[in-house]
C-alpha cells in the first residue's frame, strides 16, 4: 500500500506533533479519505501496521466520526444542513431540492455518474448564514433553490473538465 508523496509528507510531519503515534489518527484518516475518496481497507491495514494498533481499533474510530466513510461517495459530496437554524430558513427544502435535482433518494446516495452524493448533515457552523451546505469542504450559504442549481452546475462543469 502506497500513500502519495504529499500524504507521506503529511504523515511524517504529523508524527512529530505528538508524544504518542496514534494521536494523529483522526485528522490523518480524513486526509487519507481526501486522497482515496474513502478510507480503504488497505489504508486501514497500513495504518494499523504503522501505528501498532489493531485494524478493528481503527474501524472503531472511523465509524465514530460522521465525516469518515469506508465506502466511496460522489466526487462532490453535497452536505445540506437541516439543523435548527437552517430548518427555520428552509434547510429541508434545500435538501429536497438537491436530492431531486441530482436524483438521489437515499441519504449519502451517489448519482449514477458518480459525480455527486447528497447527504443530510448536522449543523456545520453556518447558522447565521442559513440555509447552508458544504460541497466537500467548500461552504455555500444563504441558499435558494436557484443558487443550488448554479453551484451544482459549476461543480458539474469542473467534473467534466477533469
Amino acid at each position: 500500500m502506497k500513500f502519495s508523496e504529499q500524504l507521506e509528507a503529511r504523515y511524517s510531519d504529523m508524527l512529530t506533533h505528538y508524544p504518542v503515534k496514534r494521536s494523529l489518527l483522526v485528522p490523518f484518516l480524513l486526509y487519507t479519505q481526501d486522497e482515496f475518496g474513502y478510507v480503504t481497507d488497505d489504508a486501514i491495514e497500513e495504518l494499523s501496521r504503522r501505528l501498532e494498533i489493531t485494524a478493528l481499533e481503527i474501524r472503531n474510530v472511523i465509524s465514530y466520526y460522521s465525516m469518515l466513510r469506508t465506502k466511496p461517495g460522489g466526487r462532490y459530496n453535497v452536505q445540506v444542513c437541516t439543523n435548527i437554524c437552517c430548518l427555520l430558513r428552509g434547510g429541508e427544502e434545500m435538501l429536497a431540492h438537491a436530492r431531486k435535482t441530482l436524483d438521489v433518494a437515499v441519504n449519502k446516495g451517489v448519482t449514477a455518474d458518480g459525480v455527486f452524493s447528497v447527504e443530510e448533515v448536522e449543523c456545520i457552523g453556518a447558522c447565521s448564514w442559513a440555509p447552508a451546505m458544504q460541497v466537500n469542504y467548500d461552504f455555500h450559504e444563504n441558499l435558494t433553490p436557484e443558487k443550488i442549481d448554479r453551484i451544482l452546475d459549476e461543480y458539474r462543469l469542473k467534473a467534466a473538465q477533469q
Binding site: 489493531t54 485494524a55 478493528l56 481499533e57 474501524r59 472503531n60 465509524s63 465514530y64
Partner: peptide
C-alpha cells in the same frame, strides 16, 4: 470493538 455511535452503536468482531 465498538462501532458507530449513539443508538447505532454495536459490538463488532475483528
Amino acid at each position: 470493538g465498538i462501532q458507530n455511535r449513539g443508538q447505532g452503536s454495536v459490538i463488532a468482531p475483528n
